[in-house]
Simulated assay, not measured.
Amino acid sequence: MSRVEIFDPAMCCSTGVCGPSTDPELTRFASAVFSLEKKGLDIKRYQLTIEPDKFAENSHVSKVLHEKGPDSLPIILVNDQIAKIGEYPSNKELASWFDVKAEELNEKPRVRLSLNIKKQ
């Protein structure tokens, strides 16, 4: 079973839907990660702004950041080995690492909102 770790650049959220414009690549990737997590597979994301210690603790990530700087992010590790630098993996790559079908990674997270509006 594969273990994948994603070391994201500094950003306000991992979905790409915050801020003035939506990044379709981040949205695609967040949906794929959601689908893999829902299956109980070992995939973790770390954001530089939230968990800088994870970046410093990992010798592979720390070395890349020292040599190439923060523009090298995201850094993707598969089973503790660097698999990609500077771009997110495709759904096909994720599927091959976890031995699932790429089509299984297209599920979108659903958020249910509940509003309690009181008349005044």
Rank of each mutant, 00 (worst) to 15 (best):
M1P: 02
S2M: 14
R3M: 05
A10W: 08
C12A: 15
C13K: 08
S14D: 05
S14I: 12
V17G: 08
G19Q: 12
G19L: 14
D23Q: 05
T27R: 12
F29E: 03
A30V: 13
A32G: 10
V33C: 00
V33Y: 03
F34L: 07
S35F: 08
L36T: 10
E37F: 11
K38C: 10
K39N: 07
K39L: 15
Y46I: 01
Y46T: 02
Q47R: 15
Q47Y: 02
L48R: 03
T49W: 04
K54C: 05
K54D: 03
E57H: 10
N58D: 11
H60R: 05
K63V: 01
H66T: 15
G69K: 04
S72F: 04
L73C: 04
N79Q: 08
D80R: 07
I82Y: 03
E87M: 10
S90R: 04
S90N: 10
E93G: 06
L94E: 09
A95I: 10
A95F: 12
S96A: 11
V100T: 12
K101L: 06
K101G: 05
N106R: 09
K108S: 07
L115V: 15
L115T: 15
I117L: 15
I117K: 11
I117F: 14
K118F: 13
K118G: 12
